[in-house]
Design a protein around this nucleic acid. Structure first.
Length: 761
DNA sequence: GAGCACTGC
């Protein structure tokens, strides 16, 4: 572990300057603090305030409440608005408010605290404020951070809390997410994504800006949360002044307690309505069919209330929606059923269509007729990311698509798998948000009890960890084996990650971070992409590789509606480059920028060309961020002139600087099957490719496992480039016997002969 | 000649 002296010392310095007395003395000598008036300033805010009565880490619930009740806002000195008092009323009715005293007493006594609160307890908005009144950040100059797994949550909760505290968002209360930092010099309480805090700590290993870190939604066990927990566990030993609160929904609270040195636990009940659970007596063979039937059954027999059905993916959802719609039409004709509006909901749906799920349920078809309802058919997105009020019936077939990682073949893929008990409970809970509800589980009670696992495996056990290992190295974690993760990944996954990073020259043979690795970790990218980007000036095409990298980091820019596939494919042909998909992406991006610069209506232009304006603009956003990072690291931005015959060749060569491990060779002439280098997987080029020629060697961006094994986003390359650009990986001495080795050996021999001839002449 | 669960930097 890296408890080096330099770090210790700096944390001590922070400690002493955070002493309120010292801060005050400093202020006297600081001519820049012109606003500081010693006469009436007790609190550093420049006015007297009820906060002056408070002592850091000694605030009682009563004192804090008194501050909140006062006419003047203790944080700004401005009078409280009427709205403030209205909200205060509702805040005081939240379940968590009952335990403010208990919370503070516990918080005073302990460094780490586990807080459990179910939905509706108010923990996400209130706990950080309770901490605020106890940490008194205006005295210490340190912030309180509260992390969220998702951006929208960080933004919306920050806005809510700003309203509750009667301050402007971005001032005393702010948020920080990728592409948007809405905080300022006055900010005391900062909501942020867990990934954002992780990124910050790469440059501040002690998290010295913060007095308190609250990890919210820890039960979701995102990769970032898991790493933050392990880091905080270490930092807590070095920084005794740092307080940590881990907040979770009930389920595995004890696991968190045990992990954090037996930290004390405080639990607050939620505010939800009871949900009655029904199981099928026999297992269902076709869960989509069973789900459709159940929805119709509810519509025919149950009282008013909306329905939420969980399915696994876009295709399944669209299919189910169609079937439900057809059947409901029949029901209306035949048995005078009420109207039902069916909405699909999944992540790749455009936001405007996602919004439609909040439309009101339809009115009865005639006055006094059977009530209408809406039915939402959703992926897992409705389990965590989106809450829909008014749901009374949940239909849960018990499956979801989950990412799995196979370290042996180094392939991440999506697989329809049974959900966990925790997920099933979460889904059922969606029925009880506004009134008592019902949940229909399309599996047997026995299956629920015996076959479902307790918790979904945390992300860290299901991912390629190359990126994570690089981050950890940059975070100063020397000893990965003893890095105390809550659920340590399989040794093989770790080994694979280390091996990959070593080949990319991000880690040396001793596993130490190299200069390249250190630079690569600065980019919010997978290591291969980062290395490609950093190397690109050597190939005189960093501008172009920057664009390609950005395009590869966002969802596909190609739009292909079911009713216009042919036209979409034709349009794509306009951008096609014969050498492959990477260059085609670049062409489309350049055309998009051209349209933008000529003042065209970009949305209209994209629509005509079957391109996604949303994803192109987000690629542009990513590009700007990556460009800034390149500039700060003096990575040159250059292009080969477009007229130069090597314009595209240089780009193809540059791709190999990062992706030399993702190469496939054609099995034999007139075969469509390729074999991947070193992994020896048989693959086909994904049908979405623009490539029509039977190239012998290709570089690919990703390996996808669906009905067949495919490589997707593919570009033609020359094998001799591999030997030149990645000589270590293509050291033929160490290569396994096979066609690929023989082919490469022939090429090496040819090159040698050519060089010998040149030398001889 | 196929498909992209969901996040995040």
């Amino acid at each position: 572990m890296m408890a080096d002296k330099g770090i210790k010392r700096s944390s001590m310095d922070n400690e002493s300057s955070s002493d309120p007395k010292r801060a005050k003395t400093d202020a006297k000598y600081n001519k820049y603090l012109a606003h500081y008036d010693d006469n009436d300033a007790q609190n550093g805010n420049g006015f007297s305030s009820p906060l002056d009565q408070l002592q850091r880490h000694k605030t009682t619930a009563e004192q804090a409440a008194k501050c909140e009740d006062s006419d003047l806002n203790p944080w700004t000195g401005q009078p409280h608005s009427q709205q403030y008092f209205n909200i205060l009323q509702t805040r005081r009715n939240l379940p968590v408010c009952q335990q403010r005293k208990e919370f503070l007493e516990m918080y005073h006594k302990t460094q780490i605290l586990v807080f459990v609160g179910e939905t509706g307890s108010g923990k996400t908005t209130q706990i950080p404020q309770y901490v605020l009144y106890d940490e008194l950040p205006h005295q210490t100059g340190k912030l309180i951070a509260c992390t969220q797994p998702r951006r929208v949550a960080a933004m919306s909760v920050a806005q809510r809390v700003a309203n509750e505290l009667d301050v402007e968002l971005g001032q005393e209360v702010g948020y920080s997410i990728r592409f948007e930092n809405k905080t300022g010099p006055k900010t005391m309480l900062k909501y942020m994504t867990d990934g954002q805090l992780l990124r910050e700590s790469m440059h501040d290993h002690e998290m010295s800006r913060y007095s308190t870190i609250i990890l919210d939604e820890a039960h979701e066990r995102t990769l970032a949360t898991d790493i933050l927990m392990a880091l905080l566990k270490q930092i807590a030993e070095r920084r005794k002044d740092l307080k940590i609160i881990v907040m979770s929904a009930t389920l595995d609270a004890q696991k968190f307690q045990t992990y954090f040195f037996g930290a004390p636990l405080l639990a607050v009940p939620g505010r939800t309505h009871p949900v009655e659970i029904f199981y099928t007596p026999e297992p269902e063979r076709d869960y989509v069919e069973a789900a459709v039937r159940t929805v119709l059954q509810i519509h025919a027999t149950e009282p008013e209330g909306d329905v939420l059905l969980f399915l696994t993916g876009e295709e399944e959802i669209e299919d189910a929606c169609r079937r439900i719609n057809l059947e409901v039409d029949d029901m209306i004709q035949e048995s005078d059923a009420g109207p039902m509006r069916v909405y699909p909901l999944y992540g790749t749906l455009p936001p405007a269509q996602q919004q439609r799920i909040f439309d009101k349920a339809p009115e009865p078809l005639r006055k006094g007729g059977r009530p209408g309802r809406k039915c939402i058919v959703a992926t897992n997105i409705a389990e965590t990311s989106l809450t829909i009020d008014g749901i009374v019936y949940v239909v849960d077939p018990g499956f979801s698509k989950q990412k799995i990682y196979n370290p042996r073949s180094r392939v991440e893929s999506l697989l329809v798998s049974p959900i966990s008990k925790a997920s099933a409970q979460q889904r059922a809970g969606r029925a009880g948000r506004t009134r008592p509800g019902k949940c229909f589980r399309l599996y047997t009670e026995k299956a629920f009890k015996k076959e479902l696992i307790e918790q979904t495996y945390p992300e860290i056990l299901r991912s390629n960890l190359a990126n994570t290992v690089l981050e950890l190295k940059k975070l100063g974690v020397e000893d990965l084996v003893h890095f105390d993760l809550m659920d340590p990944p399989a040794p093989e996954t770790m080994m694979r990650a280390l091996e990959e990073l070593n080949y990319l020259a991000c880690l040396d043979d001793d596993g130490e971070l190299t200069e390249l690795g250190s630079r690569a970790s600065e980019f919010p990218l997978d290591p291969a992409l980062a290395v490609m980007l950093i190397s690109s000036p050597e190939f005189y095409c960093s501008n172009e590789i920057l664009s390609i990298t950005s395009l590869l980091s966002v969802p596909s820019i190609w739009v292909r509606p079911n009713n216009a596939r042919k036209r979409a494919d034709e349009m794509k042909q306009q951008f096609a480059h014969p050498d492959g998909d990477h260059l085609t992406l670049l062409n489309a991006y350049h055309a998009f920028k051209g349209a933008e610069q000529s003042g065209a209506d970009v949305k209209q232009w994209c629509h005509e060309h079957f391109l996604s304006p949303r994803h192109l603009m987000s690629a542009d956003n990513v590009r700007a961020q990556l460009k800034r990072i390149m500039e700060t690291h003096d990575i040159e931005l250059i292009s080969t002139p477009f007229q130069d015959k090597n314009y595209y060749t240089n780009i193809r060569r540059a791709l190999l600087a990062g992706f030399f491990m993702q190469i496939a060779m054609r099995e034999s002439s007139n075969s469509k099957v390729y074999k991947t280098v070193k992994d020896d997987q048989l693959v086909m080029i994904h049908p979405s490719t623009v490539i029509t020629s039977p190239y012998d060697w290709v570089v690919y961006n990703e390996f996808v496992l669906t009905t067949k094994q495919y490589v997707r986003t593919v570009t033609n390359i020359r094998p001799e480039w591999l030997l030149e650009i990645a000589p270590v990986y293509y050291d033929l001495e160490a290569f396994d016997k096979g066609e690929i080795k023989s082919a490469l050996t022939r090429i090496t021999d040819k090159i040698r002969r050519r060089q010998a001839m040149k030398g001889g002449a």
